[in-house]
Computed example of a mutant assay.
Amino acid sequence: MKRQVAERSGRDAENRAAHWLEERGWSILARRLKTKAGEIDLVARRETLVAFVEVKWRLRAADLDCAIDERRLARVAAAAEAVAQEYLVSGDDMQIDVILLAPGIPPRHIANAWQP
């Protein structure tokens, strides 16, 4: 039961993050994209920039600072590399972003969070 609640919370957070991005001019190209290297929560485009987005939800805003780590970002980056050719066209740039969500606070968007 706990796993189902976490799954539902994660999906709700991803939907909220997608809506938030769309309000800021991004188009959502894919959701919950599974690759051999891992899963990408959202793939979004704005002009010539494609962002592979990791979404994190926590019940307490104070827990957001520990929600993402280098290992998790590296996994998202590897997954993005595996599918980048499907979303990028000549002249496009790509980046790995993070959106952090918790009740009562606006989403926190960390653009270009992965810089190896």
Rank of each mutant, 00 (worst) to 15 (best):
residue 15 N to H: 07
residue 45 R to E: 02
residue 34 K to A: 05
residue 40 I to Y: 07
residue 109 H to D: 01
residue 22 E to D: 11
residue 58 R to W: 06
residue 4 Q to K: 14
residue 15 N to A: 02
residue 7 E to C: 04
residue 69 D to M: 05
residue 23 E to P: 00
residue 84 A to P: 13
residue 46 R to C: 02
residue 38 G to P: 08
residue 62 A to F: 07
residue 18 A to E: 03
residue 80 A to Q: 14
residue 28 I to S: 12
residue 37 A to D: 06
residue 33 L to E: 10
residue 56 K to I: 00
residue 11 R to G: 11
residue 103 P to D: 04
residue 95 Q to H: 03
residue 96 I to D: 03
residue 61 A to N: 06
residue 15 N to P: 05
residue 41 D to S: 10
residue 18 A to P: 15
residue 85 Q to M: 14
residue 49 L to C: 01
residue 33 L to S: 04
residue 95 Q to D: 03
residue 58 R to K: 14
residue 31 R to T: 04
residue 115 Q to A: 08
residue 61 A to H: 07
residue 105 I to S: 12
residue 52 F to W: 01
residue 112 N to H: 04
residue 10 G to D: 08
residue 109 H to A: 02
residue 80 A to T: 12
residue 37 A to Q: 05
residue 33 L to T: 01
residue 18 A to F: 11
residue 104 G to I: 09
residue 1 M to A: 15
residue 58 R to L: 10
residue 31 R to C: 00
residue 68 I to T: 08
residue 72 R to L: 14
residue 26 W to T: 03
residue 99 I to L: 14
residue 96 I to C: 06
residue 99 I to Q: 12
residue 113 A to W: 12
residue 62 A to E: 14
residue 83 V to R: 13
residue 103 P to F: 05
residue 25 G to K: 05
residue 31 R to L: 01
residue 25 G to E: 04
residue 57 W to F: 15
residue 3 R to S: 12
residue 114 W to N: 02
residue 15 N to Q: 11
residue 35 T to C: 05
